[in-house]
C-alpha cells in the first residue's frame, strides 16, 4: 500500500533543548493510529511539525507528495484549540470561518456532526464545558475532507459520555482512505479502535506496530505500552 505520511529524520530543538531526534515514521492510508507517550514526550510537537505550525526543524515531511508547509496544511486537518477566536464568538461564527477558509470544509457534514454531538450553534465559546469544546473541535476537524487527521489528546479531561461520542464519531465519519493519528498518554479508552500503535519515548519514535500483531502475542495494547515504562517504575 502507498504511504500517506512519511516523516524522515526529523529533529527539533527549542530553547536549545532537544525535543525530538531522528524521528522516522510511515503511515499507510485508511488507518487509525495511536501516538502514545508520556506528557512532554514530544507528541504534540511531532503533530505540530507535521502540520507545519512548528518551525525550524530538520528533516522532511511528505503527505501524499506534498512537502511544502502550505501544501501539507491543505491535506491535513489538525485539532486546533480555537485560540484564534474570542470567548464571545458563537459556534456558528466559528463554523463560518472554517467554511470560508477551508475549501474542503463540508457544512452539511458539520451539521450532522453537530447534531450528533448535540451542540447548539447559538452558543458562545465561553459557555462551552471542556467536553463540549472538545466535541466542537472534533466536529470541525472531521468536517474537512482531508487525507490525514491529527487529533491531539482529544480525550483530555472530559467525561465518559463525551468520550464515547467522540469515539463513535471517529467510527461513523472516518473516510475509508483517510488516516487518523490520535495522540494520548492513556490507551485503554481507544484500544479496540486501533489499527496501529506508535510509541514516542526518549525524543523519538521508539516503536511502530500493528495492534493485532501485539494482541497476537497475547499482550494487551496497554500492557505493551506500559512495558516501555516498566524499568522506570522499578527505580
Amino acid at each position: 500500500m502507498n504511504d500517506l505520511l512519511t516523516v524522515k529524520d526529523v529533529s527539533y530543538k527549542k530553547n536549545q533543548k532537544l525535543v525530538l531526534q531522528n524521528v522516522n515514521l510511515k503511515l499507510n492510508s485508511g488507518k487509525i493510529v495511536a501516538l502514545l507517550g508520556e506528557n512532554g514526550a514530544g507528541k504534540t510537537t511531532l503533530m505540530r511539525i507535521i502540520a507545519g505550525v512548528a518551525k525550524n526543524y530538520k528533516g522532511e515531511i511528505n503527505i501524499e507528495g506534498a512537502t511544502k508547509e502550505a501544501e501539507r496544511k491543505a491535506k491535513l486537518s489538525f485539532t486546533d484549540g480555537l485560540t484564534g477566536f474570542s470567548d464571545s464568538t458563537k459556534i456558528k461564527e466559528v463554523v463560518k470561518f472554517y467554511a470560508t477558509i477551508f475549501e474542503d470544509f463540508d457544512e452539511n457534514e458539520f451539521d450532522e456532526l453537530r447534531q450528533f454531538m448535540k451542540l447548539d450553534p447559538e452558543m458562545k465559546l465561553s459557555q462551552l464545558s471542556r467536553g463540549m469544546r472538545e466535541k466542537l473541535i472534533i466536529a470541525l476537524t472531521f468536517s474537512r475532507k482531508a487525507d490525514l487527521y491529527l487529533l491531539d489528546e482529544p480525550f483530555g479531561g472530559i467525561d465518559a459520555m463525551a468520550r464515547k461520542k467522540i469515539i463513535n464519531s471517529i467510527i461513523l465519519w472516518k473516510d475509508e482512505k483517510a488516516t487518523i493519528l490520535i495522540s494520548d498518554h492513556f490507551v485503554n479508552e481507544i484500544s479496540s479502535l486501533l489499527d496501529e500503535v506508535v510509541i514516542v519515548k526518549d525524543h523519538t519514535v521508539l516503536e511502530h506496530k500493528s495492534a493485532d500483531d501485539i494482541r497476537q502475542t497475547h499482550k494487551s495494547i496497554e500492557e505493551y505500552y506500559e512495558s516501555f515504562y516498566a524499568d522506570e517504575d522499578d527505580e
Binding site: F78, D80, L82, G84
Partner: peptide, 15 residues
C-alpha cells in the same frame, strides 16, 4: 496576535 495564532497559521497559504 494573528501572526502567532495557530488557528490562523493552520490555513493552507504560503507565509
Amino acid at each position: 496576535k494573528i501572526n502567532r495564532s495557530q488557528t490562523w497559521r493552520l490555513i493552507p497559504v504560503t507565509d
